[in-house]
Amino acid sequence: MFSFAGCEGCVIEFVEMLNDNYEKWKNLIDFRYAKILKGNNDLKNLDVAFIEGAIASEKDVERIKEIRGNCKKLVAIGTCATTGQPAGQRNFFNEEQKNEVAPLVEKFHQLPKVLSVKEVVKVDFEVPGCPMIDEKFIEVLNSLLKEFNVT
């Protein structure tokens, strides 16, 4: 689970889903990288990476490419990751608002335009919703478990 520009609501939604699903998932899923759950995290050789948030900075671009290079399947979760919004609302600012935030966009090496994940790397599955829709997430997760022969 990786977070980019956004409110972290999709990861929170996932943590909420653990209330009812943890007993089942703990035997099926090896959580290798989830900063919300653990301190020791490793992004090498992942089967699946779940991405929340939009790609907003040069650093984000590097990072998402690194993750893509280390996972077999990549899933974008929530509207920020799948559409770039609402994290990327500055894309729609008027001239005055753009000028107001320009010094910050530059100082923090933010991209001129906030991007969805698929605009930067190949995305295998998408889970829509703000926050992501639980049923859709479980649908994608189950199909991935099947694909990787995890039972």
Binding site: A5, A54, Q89
Partner: peptide, 13 residues
């Protein structure tokens, strides 16, 4: 180390 999302500007208007 969060990306900026400019909500206080975004709600104007």
């Amino acid at each position: 180390s969060e990306d900026k999302r400019f909500y206080t500007q975004a709600v104007v208007g």
